[in-house]
Write a protein that binds this DNA or RNA. Structure first.
Length: 487
RNA sequence: CGGGGCGUGGCGCAGCCCGGUAGCGCGCCUGCUUUGGGAGCAGGAUGCCGGAGGUUCAAAUCCUCUCGCCCCGACCA
């Protein structure tokens, strides 16, 4: 069914802009939600979107949470330049090769052609590595734990709002360590930070694991990831951490004099989470009515809608002012625009505001407000004297409920298969995460992709004792791998 | 980058086949009446028909090129 058909088939009366039915066309629904909820908009340049105030407020809340977690684990923020001279980028062959197809190049400064092309960073390993070599001399300079919040550019062929844009915002951590073990620990520690960020702040359950060789970061020794399952059954790489080994250290000459008076290369890590996480939020919690935002990051946690009648208008507004005073601790929006209540309800639901308080004459008479949850739709009266307590409890409950729903959905969509046939049949029937034994060879990985379009999303940290026979070749499996179609 | 679909007031669409004064619904503005799930009536404004070329007396409509969006395949946060 086309986007137009599914939109026209909706018969909500007086609808202004109707969301595409989430079950008919998930992609169209996603674009509708992002645009109608005013998270982002297109610009005239392909792949370059505007993050609108509401979307940016959401990102700011997410960023604040993640930033706090990064700082709690001992990292500090800094800012490195957007531009990288070509010669610097060229130093690391695998790295360049990995990013070459998507690098944007600056060839002119004003009217004058540059002697050396300048790259717009697709990621900052190269610039940062070259600087670190100047900063590090002694083991006493280690570990070096720096994070930056920045924009990066990857010239993608296929772009999608938040999920894959030409320019995107992210944080990238770049650390140097004295030992191999310490660097490995760091990359695992940051993976856990990401896991907690997703699960506790965004209410998105994630699966932690190792990337296969073919999926790992260009230039890394190992890439670890957190993967999330979207409501259409496709997986989304939500964050990655890389154990870089000494690869970049050797290329950029990042050496230190150790306690034993010998010169050694540092062991590095890097890790990032991007604005793609906003897309994950939309596609994990959204429903037929629009967004559902977790209270911890929702720009507006509570919307208060006055129900105004001519005779009681002033009293109601006065009563609302009193109600608002009780909500000082929350991000509250008071919608006293002259839209009708029904309009405001629908709008708040579209924008995913976790709690709505309706305040009208009936409530006023009973010293109460009418509280409506976005996640469950539950509507109930709450006495104003209990409001602060009930709101706090309910917001916590919504945060938990969203997580529980997402987790239940993922569990429903997680299956175990033994053979390629079973995987193909399973994916045809229901998209989701499929555990299967894998021998570890790239040939088998490619064969699976060829046949099913599914890729190895990760090799989960929890591995079974008995792994069985590889789904593709039948040899002894090295891994229990998770396959899925992915964004 | 290949295959398919789509670009027409802010939004959703009709008109295109078969060239001849650009339409509908919603939104927007003004006024009045309204307001507990997307209000009613009356009046009003808003279009380089995605962009550039071409064919023609005449192009939203035909032809060529281009840009963008969506979907399906090859590459990636």
């Amino acid at each position: 069914m086309s986007k137009q058909d599914s939109k026209n088939s909706k018969d909500r009366k007086g609808a202004v802009e109707v969301l595409t039915d989430i079950n008919e066309d998930f992609s169209a629904w996603y674009v509708d939600v992002v645009r109608q909820a005013k998270l982002a908009d297109y610009t005239s340049l392909k792949g370059c979107m505007v993050i609108r105030p509401y979307g940016f407020a959401l990102w700011e809340n997410m960023r604040a949470r993640l930033d706090g977690r990064i700082k709690e684990t001992g990292h500090v923020n800094a800012y490195f330049p957007l531009f990288i001279p070509e010669s610097l980028l060229q130093k690391e062959a695998d790295h360049v090769e990995g990013f070459a197809p998507e690098v944007a190049w600056v060839t002119h400064g004003g009217n004058k052609e540059l002697e050396e092309r300048v790259c717009v960073r697709p990621t900052s390993e190269a610039v940062i590595g070259s600087i670190y070599s100047k900063w590090i001399q002694s083991y006493r300079d280690l570990p070096l734990l720096i994070n930056q919040w920045a924009n990066v550019v990857r010239w993608e062929k296929v772009t999608r709002l938040f999920l894959r844009t030409t320019e995107f915002l992210w944080q990238e951590g770049h650390t140097c360590h004295r030992t191999e073990q310490e660097a490995l620990n760091e990359s695992l520690k940051m993976l856990e930070v990401y896991e907690r960020f997703y699960e506790e702040d965004l209410a998105i359950p994630v699966l932690k694991g190792l990337k296969s060789e073919s999926e790992k970061f260009a230039g890394a020794r190992s890439t670890f990831c957190v993967e999330a399952l979207m409501r259409d059954g496709k997986a989304l790489q939500a964050g990655t951490t890389h154990d870089l080994g000494q690869h970049f250290a050797k290329v950029f000459d990042i050496k230190f004099l150790d306690e034993d008076e010998t010169e050694k290369y540092v062991w590095q890590t890097s890790w990032g989470v991007s604005t793609r996480s906003v897309g994950a939020l939309v596609m994990t919690h959204g429903d037929a009515r629009g967004l559902r935002l977790p209270p911890k990051v929702a720009p507006t946690q509570i919307v208060v809608v006055p129900i105004l009648f001519d005779k009681t208008r002033d009293e109601t507004l006065h009563y609302c002012a009193y109600v608002l005073e009780c909500l000082d601790d929350y991000r509250v929006e008071f919608d006293d625009s002259d839209k009708t209540p029904g309009w405001k309800f629908a709008e708040a639901e579209l924008r995913g505001v976790p709690l709505r308080l309706e305040v009208g004459p009936r409530d006023m008479k009973n010293d109460q407000v009418t509280m409506v949850r976005r996640d469950t739709g539950e509507k109930r009266p709450v006495l104003v004297e209990d409001l602060d307590r009930i709101v706090e409890e309910t917001l916590e409950d919504i945060q938990r409920e969203l997580y529980d729903q997402a987790l239940a959905f993922r569990e429903e969509r997680t299956r175990r298969v033994k053979t390629l046939d079973e995987l193909a049949a399973g994916l045809d029937e229901l998209r989701g995460l499929y555990h299967a034994p894998w021998c570890g060879s790239e040939e088998c990985e490619a064969a699976v992709k060829e046949r099913t379009k599914a890729t190895i999303r990760c090799l989960p940290f929890d591995q079974p004792e008995e792994k069985g026979a590889c789904l593709a070749c039948g040899e002894n499996a090295k891994w229990d791998a998770v396959f899925a179609r992915a964004y």
